[in-house]
């Protein structure tokens, strides 16, 4: 996080400021979390924003994960952003600017999220993991299948309403051990 880059970014943010209540960057609300900027697009503008970020030099998605906000009343969302149960968190990095940026998109349960595969092929495994762990379906993903759990597993373990507890051993295609 070089200071210069952050300064430039803040200037940009001020230039594009449109709504009086919330600060905007690339047309979406922006917040600051521990030196990293966080963008809050809505689901419809998600792909356009990522395409724009790619143009801006954020060449790598380093991480994509989902958070299940079922039991957490959030206070850190900008005023114009309505919270939904699931949030897709995308961390991007620009090597040239030496800068990170984070995108947080809200998605209700059962809503399909557009896949980032065509923009960033590296998100393939991350989106599969998000699907496996949270059941978030990414539309237009080349291989939307489980990645960590067995293919025939039922449930999505990292959801907040999924029990952590111990489960008996499951055998695939073997006679029961009695």
């Amino acid at each position: 996080m070089s200071d210069d880059a952050t300064d430039v970014a803040v200037d940009e943010a001020e230039d594009t400021e449109a709504a009086p209540s919330v600060e905007l960057l690339y047309g979406v609300p922006v917040a600051e979390a521990f030196g990293q900027r966080v963008l809050f697009p809505d689901l419809d503008g998600y792909i356009e924003l990522l395409a724009e970020l790619r143009e801006q030099g954020f060449g790598q998605v380093v991480d994509l994960c989902v958070v299940d906000y079922l039991q957490h009343e959030r206070t850190d969302l900008p005023a114009t952003v309505g919270g939904e149960r699931f949030e897709i968190v995308v961390n991007l990095i620009s090597h040239a600017r030496r800068e990170r940026i984070r995108v947080r998109v809200q998605a209700a349960d059962g809503v399909e999220v557009p896949s980032l595969f065509d923009l960033y092929p590296g998100t393939e495994a991350m989106e599969r993991e998000a699907f496996d762990m949270f059941g978030t379906v990414f539309s237009d993903h080349p291989d939307m299948s489980r990645i960590l759990m067995p293919e025939e597993w039922s449930g999505h373990p990292l959801r907040k309403d999924y029990e952590i507890g111990r489960i008996p051993v499951q055998f695939k295609g073997a006679p029961s051990q009695g």
Partner: peptide
């Protein structure tokens, strides 16, 4: 030092090629 004002990262250094 990497350039700080290069427009996109792909142009920063190394042999690039296509993806």
């Amino acid at each position: 030092p990497s350039t700080t004002d290069a427009p996109i990262a792909q142009e920063s250094s190394g042999f690039v090629g296509t993806d």
